[in-house]
């Protein structure tokens, strides 16, 4: 992420969370946190507990973020935020928390006679990670039509181009789903597992070969030793943990979408 991207990220994040942007320059900004945001990112539970117990006047923090230190000529004190900085990581986590579940309707223009029918979909974004002594991650966005059961890949990229709103347009009519959302979620989970099963897993086999090689070396060291010492078992365990291949499936976010546009 470039400084500019980080800047607009911060701007959007605080704006969407109703934090007033007091000052906004192109390489720094000052933000007045709301009480909720202060509690979320300032890490001072005792202050808030004290305040609530004493009925004090809450005074959420005001923060200045410098998003491009190289351009800074003004005499500004603030937190430098860059890609990899702890603050940005924290905001990433907060974003994940605050944007995990949605319920959206595609907007329809004024229709004179009939109401536009909206079809319900469940969309879920999955992160799949392969681990051995190495890591690889993949992102899958799956959607399932809750009327027909039709499954699509790349759902997020499609749906984000639509005009969506949490409220349904007056001229629209949302169909009731036939497939229950939780049942649909199970189908998507199965679909993800199918994708994983059909993937190329040479990486796991290669990790196994590395593991075997190291294991042989270790055995060689203790060859002929009758009573193997404790550290032998420990080394063995360390090798198992180092090379053991495993897969993690994590849902980033997901939600219900009522769409007029059909997706294939």
């Amino acid at each position: 992420m470039y400084p500019q991207q980080i800047h607009s990220y911060l701007h959007n994040f605080f704006d969407e969370n109703n934090c007033h942007i007091v000052k906004n320059h192109d390489h720094y900004m000052t933000v007045q946190l709301t009480i909720e945001m202060d509690k979320k990112i300032m890490d001072r539970p005792y202050y808030w507990k004290y305040l609530e117990n004493t009925n004090g006047v809450p005074n959420p923090a005001q923060l200045t973020f410098i998003t491009d230190q190289n351009k800074l000529i003004e005499n500004i004190k603030g937190e430098v935020v860059h890609f990899g900085s702890p603050r940005l990581n924290q905001l990433f986590r907060a974003t994940k928390d605050l944007g995990a579940f949605v319920h959206m309707y595609e907007q329809v223009g004024n229709q004179i006679q009939t109401k536009t029918i909206l079809t319900p979909w469940l969309g879920v974004n999955y992160k799949v990670s392969y681990y051995s002594d190495q890591t690889k991650e993949m992102l899958y966005s799956l959607g399932i039509n809750l009327i027909t059961g039709h499954l699509v890949d790349g759902f997020q990229e499609r749906v984000r181009t639509f005009d969506l709103d949490p409220e349904m347009s007056e001229d629209a009519f949302g169909l009731t789903f036939i497939i229950k959302p939780l049942r649909a979620l199970e189908r998507l989970d199965l679909a993800i597992e199918k994708i994983i099963n059909e993937d190329d897993h040479t990486w796991a086999e290669e990790a196994k070969i590395r593991w075997q090689k190291d294991r042989e070396v270790l055995e060689h060291f203790y060859e002929g030793v009758e009573d193997k010492p404790e550290c032998y078992d420990m080394e063995k365990r360390a090798l198992d943990e180092q090379y053991e291949s495993r897969i993690n499936i994590e849902i980033i976010n997901g939600g219900l979408f009522y769409l007029k546009t059909s997706i294939n």
Partner: peptide, 30 residues
Amino acid sequence: RLEEREPWDNWTLYNMSYDVVKTNLITDFT
């Protein structure tokens, strides 16, 4: 959320969250 015990989240933050994961994705073993 389905049982309406918690509110739904914000669409912009939803998209931002997806983008963050996409940006930070480790796409290669090496």
